[in-house]
Amino acid sequence: MKALKQSGFLLLLLSIAFAGAAFQTAETCNSATLKQKAKEALNPFKYDSGKVTRVLYKPKAQLKEIEVPVFIGEKYRMVFNTEALSKNVVISVYNKDKETKNRKVLFTTKNAQPGKKIHVYEPEQAKFKFYVDYEIPSAKDSTATPECLIFMLGYR
């Protein structure tokens, strides 16, 4: 009888922990610390817009693309914080979208220094739109917990 009560209590605790972990997962991708680090790298540019991309690894590789409209002649800085990623997600900036043949890669982290978590790119000339691609590698097993990649755009 006592053993059953203890087991019940243990399961209750486990269930509460399970629910708590789920809340934690939702919060992981909205980390103020990750954003703060990106914002520091944005300085002295002013915050213009930002995007938190949730990354789930799957058995097949993925490509996610973000369209970034900009104004002609303005100066911009792009900052990516990959600190919360466990795998090497390649970030590239293009002049055209993924459907366009012969598009030009303007920036890529493909050959970035291993361990580098903050990536910064300042386009030489703003031309109305940039396309930021995330190449997410495959994983043997799909992950249940999303990781996140922070992108901030600044102007001055």
Partner: peptide
């Protein structure tokens, strides 16, 4: 839906 676009300030 998840990715969306970016719009300036």
């Amino acid at each position: 839906e998840d990715e969306g676009g970016m719009l300036p300030s």
